[in-house]
Amino acid sequence: MKDRLKDFVQTHRDEFDSFTPRPDLWQDIAADLQTEEKNLILPVDQKQEAKIISMTWHHAWRYAAAVALLVMVAFSAKYYMASSDSPGTVAAAQPVTLEKIAPEVKQIETRYVQVIEKKESELKALGAGNVQFAELDSAYNALKKELYTTPNKEVLLQAMSDNLKMRIALLNQQLEVLENRNNVKTRARHETTNI
């Protein structure tokens, strides 16, 4: 059934909204909202806490964006350094020291070098010449150079400390051999004097 009345009302819909609320009604609503918010936040600590958490979640994307940006910058810096053909210009633009790249190297070196020097002086006392670690030395230096360009710092540092440990092991072997020899010698001397 065609509803003429409905059609007419529909075409003149806007004219039916002729009343206007008093202009200061919003002030009342705003005042009520204000008191409601105060009541919500002030008396119960838990509610305030809940609000803080929700705010944090709401702003989480900002932190995520900041972290992403940092990661991007770090990666691009690394890539730039790795792909750069002229390390001289890089060094000039940005003085890269080993301490900056891997501060652990210094710790490792001081720790092991002390032990190595002690062993070497013990060996000297036993009458042996300086032990030459030519191959180990060159390997170590190569590793150290690689530190400037590698993204895989941990593996390199492990290899470097292994290198140093190997020297200590070798020195220990040497010491053992010398001590054994000396023992044999002194025993032989004792034996000869006893006879």
Binding site: F16, T20, P21, L25
Partner: peptide, 9 residues
């Protein structure tokens, strides 16, 4: 506010 006021009116 205006349209809602008229609804309620």
């Amino acid at each position: 506010s205006k349209s809602m006021f008229n609804v309620s009116m």
